[in-house]
Each structure stands twice: as C-alpha cells, then as structure tokens.
C-alpha cells in the first residue's frame, strides 16, 4: 500500500524520475565500482554503451519526437568518426590534408576534431535532410537509407583513407585536463557528452521549437494550415540530430582508435533504430536504456553462442509485435509517453 502511494504521488517522486535517478546513480558510481573490483573492462564496455546511447538519443529526436523515420543515421555517426580518424591519420603520416587548399596539417586536438566532427556531420545531415524531407513516409525511410548507403560506398572506394579496410588512428585525441587513454577519464567524457547533449535536447523539446517538432509529428498538415513552415523546423531538428550522431561517431573513433566504412553501414543504422524502439520511442531515457540493454544482450548472448543473432532476430519481432512502449514503457507505464 505504502509503495503504491509512494509511486502515485504526483510530484518529483514519479516512477519516471526514479528510473532516471537509479540510472544516473549507477552510471555515476560505476568508476568507483570498477576501481574497487579493479575491472577496467567494465568501464571500457560501458563507455561504448554510452556512446551508442548518445547516437540512439539523437536518432530518437527525429524518429520519436519529429516523426521522421531516418534509416540512415549511421551515416552521420560515420562522418563524425572519419573526421577524427582522418585528422589523426594525417598526424601519423606527417602529411597535410590533400583535398583541402592551404597545406593544412592533421590534428589530434580534441578541441578541434570533436567540434569539427559535429559540424561536418551536421552539414551532411543538412544536405541529406534537405533532399529527404521533400518526401514523406516510406519514401523518406528509403531515401535516408540510400543516402547513407551512398556515403558508405563512397568511403569504401576512398583508397586514400583506407577504403574497405578502414583507417587506423595515430591514437586518441588530446583534451586539456583529460587523458583519454585513462579509461576512467574516457568514461567521464562519454558520460559528459551524453548528459550534455541529453540536457540540450531536453531544453529544446520543452521550448517553442520542441512544440513545433511534436506538432509536425502528430499532424503535419494542420501545422502548415496554421502557418508553420514545417520543412524548416524538421530540417533543423534533423541537423541537430545529425550533430549528436556525429559526436557519438567522434567518441567511437577515439574508443577504438580505428574507423571503417562499417560505421556507416545500414546494419548499424538498423541497430540504432532497434535501440531506440527497445528502450522506448519518444522518450529521452528510453534510448539510453535501449542502447545499454541491446549491447548488454549482445555481450551476454555472444557468450553463449556465436550465432546470437538467431535469437536476437525473433526477439526483435516479438518486441515489435507485442510491446510497443519498450523497456521504459514496461518500467513506468503511460508516463513514458512524451513524444
């Protein structure tokens, strides 16, 4: 009884906030747990989860809130990753960036390469988005997919930067005050980026811009009849989302010190979508939970059988058919709905 009252209290003590609190508590205390157990793999693994959580969150902004089913989000992740990778590779070679004028050298400074990764991913999202948003529904899905695929093949044929084999980096980026080779530092960077981007998106969604984006998902015709230039708002949301994915890509490149066209593959785009749906579409915590559980599931299932995808596939179908609200929906019920 007491529990029920506790949960039904309509104030800060909502089940949603409880989930958020527990999630934050776990993530914040993880470095401590890792150092007590002397388990550095734990931090490396969870860092990767946080990076994918960032990518999934950015994707949810367009799918869950904006109603734009982008099936090519790996492209922006890949652009972010290659930005970091190419800049670093030039440092390794001691060469200048050949395709740009002015003999610009490469760099390993995170202060340059991370923002640049976001900027370039945003630019690519601007171009692809501007073309894709001329269409709707199934066309939009297929066109975003095809554009991502175009970039994928472009990088496969880009022999200068490793082609199909990918590109090894000189090392991780340098940031003042942080040592990215230190697993704990790297973990904090990932958690910081995820939190920062998450808070920004949260603010945006609560502001007038967010109301328009939600309106565009629920009833785009009505939005236009009310005088909103929906195209522009959706495009801006698409770019913001692409920048988030670009940042995730930049972190992922640092994580593995290697980039390859696989980062842009449609398979990864699909996986990002799976994470969003698994965790809870149209919520901010959902994609984070989704990314963590998807990668955890991969980790656990892969421990039993190398053919773990034969279990994952049908599982995915069951989730789609029988549980629309994802993990967050199962945890907090109707309160999960925010899109």
């Amino acid at each position: 009884m007491i529990m029920k009252q506790f949960f039904s209290t309509r104030n800060l003590l909502t089940r949603k906030n409880l989930v958020l609190f527990l999630l934050a508590l776990t993530l914040l205390s993880l470095p401590l747990i890792a150092s007590i157990n002397d388990d550095s793999y734990l931090l490396i693994m969870v860092s990767r989860m946080l990076i994918f959580a960032l990518a999934a969150l950015s994707l949810d902004l367009v799918i869950g809130y904006g109603g734009m089913v982008s099936f090519g989000h790996a492209a922006y992740l890949g652009v972010g990753a290659y930005t970091v990778g190419i800049l670093s590779a030039h440092v390794m070679e001691g060469s200048s960036i050949g395709f740009l004028p002015g003999n610009l050298p490469g760099t390993e400074s995170g202060l340059i390469s991370l923002p640049l990764a976001m900027l370039l991913a945003g630019l690519v999202a601007l171009v692809f988005g501007a073309l894709s948003l001329r269409t709707r529904g199934i066309h939009f899905i297929m066109i975003t997919l095809a554009f991502a695929q175009m970039l994928y093949y472009l990088f496969i044929s880009l022999y200068r930067y490793g082609g199909e084999d990918g590109l090894s980096m000189n090392g991780r980026n340098l940031l003042p005050g942080l040592d990215l080779y230190n697993d704990t530092h790297f973990y904090w960077l990932c958690l910081g980026c995820l939190t920062g981007y998450g808070l920004l998106v949260y603010k945006f969604l609560g502001a007038r811009f967010g109301q328009v984006i939600r309106g565009c998902k629920q009833n785009p015709e009505k939005m236009q009849a009310l005088g909103f230039a929906t195209y522009r708002y959706q495009l801006v949301a698409f770019v913001i989302s692409g920048m988030g994915a670009g940042l995730a890509g930049a972190l992922l490149a640092n994580h593995s010190e290697f980039v390859s066209p696989d980062l842009m593959s449609w398979h990864l785009s699909g996986e990002l979508m799976v994470m969003v749906i698994l965790g809870g579409l149209g919520t901010l915590i959902g994609p984070i939970l989704g990314a963590i559980s998807y990668l955890l599931m991969e980790e656990v299932l892969a421990g039993y059988t190398e053919h773990w995808q034969i279990i994952l596939g049908p599982l995915l179908i069951l989730v789609v058919l029988f549980s629309r609200k994802g993990i967050l929906g199962a945890l907090v019920g109707k309160a999960a709905d925010d899109g």
Partner: peptide, 14 residues
C-alpha cells in the same frame, strides 16, 4: 512503417 522496418530487420538477422 517503423514497426515493419524493425520486424523485417529482425527477420534478416534471423
């Protein structure tokens, strides 16, 4: 369409 994409994506994996 989103559901269709995801479920048939699951089929591909399978």
């Amino acid at each position: 369409h989103l559901d269709q994409v995801l479920a048939t994506f699951g089929l591909i994996l399978f």
